[in-house]
């Protein structure tokens, strides 16, 4: 199934998959507006560190979140270009910077499991659970977590050194 078709069939059980480093992340298909190649980025000084910049999406200005940074993963070093997965949140679009866009999957319900308590606090805040796919674990992104990205560092940056 192509991505476009997947977007049209708005089934909550279908997930667009994205690879970020070694992780496979799933986002409900109806949340995903489009996936576009790397765009020129305008940096936003003083923004939360997860905010990578702003892109021009056909006249709309969209904030881009660097998922690697968000997950505290190492920055990319293979020189490849990240992709923008543009998600529709309640009242705006936000782009997630991912390594690669994968297929749309419809995992069986009974393969879903909450995250193990051993997972870090941070991970448990970002993902609502996991599907055990044959080869991978699919981490289901809780999109509401995107709105919780704020930064204490911003204020710190605003404060001038004494």
């Amino acid at each position: 199934m192509s991505l476009e078709e997947a977007v049209i069939s708005a089934d909550a059980q279908q997930y667009c998959t994205f690879r970020v480093d070694h992780l496979l992340i799933g986002v409900e298909v109806w949340r995903v507006q489009e996936v576009i190649r790397h765009q020129p980025m305008t940096l936003v000084p003083l923004a939360p560190p997860e905010v990578r910049g702003l892109i021009n999406l056909r006249g709309q200005i969209v904030t881009t979140i660097d998922v690697r940074h968000w997950l505290r993963l190492e920055p990319r070093d293979d020189g490849g270009q990240a992709m923008n997965a543009v998600l529709r949140l309640d009242d705006e679009a936000v782009s997630l910077l991912v390594d690669e866009a994968g297929e749309v999957v419809s995992p069986a319900r009974d393969t879903f499991e909450p995250l193990p308590p051993t997972a870090s606090e941070r991970i448990r805040r970002l993902f609502s659970g996991t599907y055990k796919l044959p080869e991978h674990l699919l981490l289901v992104l809780d999109t509401t977590a995107i709105s919780t990205i704020t930064s204490g560092q911003r204020d710190a940056a605003l404060r001038r050194p004494a």
Binding site: V44, P45, A47, L54, I55, V62, T63, E92, R154
Partner: peptide, 27 residues
């Protein structure tokens, strides 16, 4: 003048963003 997303709009030094002639975004 275009509005900024939720992650950026609380930054007091920016009033918004715009798209420039070359398609780039400027705060």
């Amino acid at each position: 003048v275009k509005p900024l997303g939720q992650h950026v709009k609380q930054i007091p030094v920016f009033a918004g963003a715009t798209i420039l002639g070359d398609g780039g975004v400027a705060l």
